[in-house]
Design a binder for these strands. Structure first.
Lengths: 118, 118
DNA sequence: CCGCATCCACGATGATACTG
DNA sequence: CAGTATCATCGTGGATGCGG
């Protein structure tokens, strides 16, 4: 694993958007229609959800299925690639959950130190 | 792991910046002075490197040591928390490396399909 | 050498209105 | 319900010059 540059930039291209990770996580629980997905990812805007889904679809992480109903419904689901990715991303989320106290403590300490010399 | 919202947003707060992941990776190889670090993370700007390092320092992931030399030198190194995080982040990078072909294929296919209806 | 301050360009994000 | 279009806004990131 030598070429950090290309690799980390690729990672940022995948999940650099603000909501991508959250959307992948929510879809990990099962397929959802657009509206339901939006409720679960609130307060995301309609536009950003669409945009995020398009990106995920483009990368083959998510599938989009238009149901032949009236009014039309569109179902989004994780593709195999997406599920595989979710497993990897879960490691980072688990790490964050396990270290959230240390992170907050560091932040508080750092912010307090910065405030003193104000 | 139910509270995706807070967790994923926290993750984005940690590594949402464009260069954070790369900086952490490079520092994973060993402590570096500012200039060396910048060379290794090119084409990052001075400003963004400083900003990224401040954030990492604030979260307790990186330590900053001013060496008593003339001219002054500043050495940055991963703290324990940072090393621990790097291990988790490596999983995502490894996944990306292993699936880079599938990702690029999906992108190419998707872009081609989009181009046809132009 | 380190890195802060300022100005500036651009993209990402978001609110709103509108279409199928 | 799903999605597009438009406009306003904010943060990110870059260029440059100055100070320790």
């Amino acid at each position: 694993m030598a070429d950090y540059r290309a690799l980390t930039l690729e990672v940022m291209d995948l999940v650099g958007d603000k909501w991508t990770l959250l959307v992948v996580y929510v879809l990990g629980e099962g397929p959802l229609r657009f509206s339901d997905l939006r409720r679960r990812t609130a307060p995301i805007s309609q536009k950003m959800l669409t945009q995020t889904l398009r990106q995920l679809e483009r990368h083959g992480m998510v599938t989009r299925t238009v149901l032949p109903t009236a009014p039309p419904q569109v179902e989004y689901a994780l593709a195999d690639l997406g599920r595989s990715f979710l497993a990897a991303a879960s490691v980072v989320c688990a790490w964050t959950r396990d270290n959230i106290d240390a992170l907050e403590a560091a932040r508080t300490r750092s912010d307090a130190a910065a405030g003193e010399k104000g």
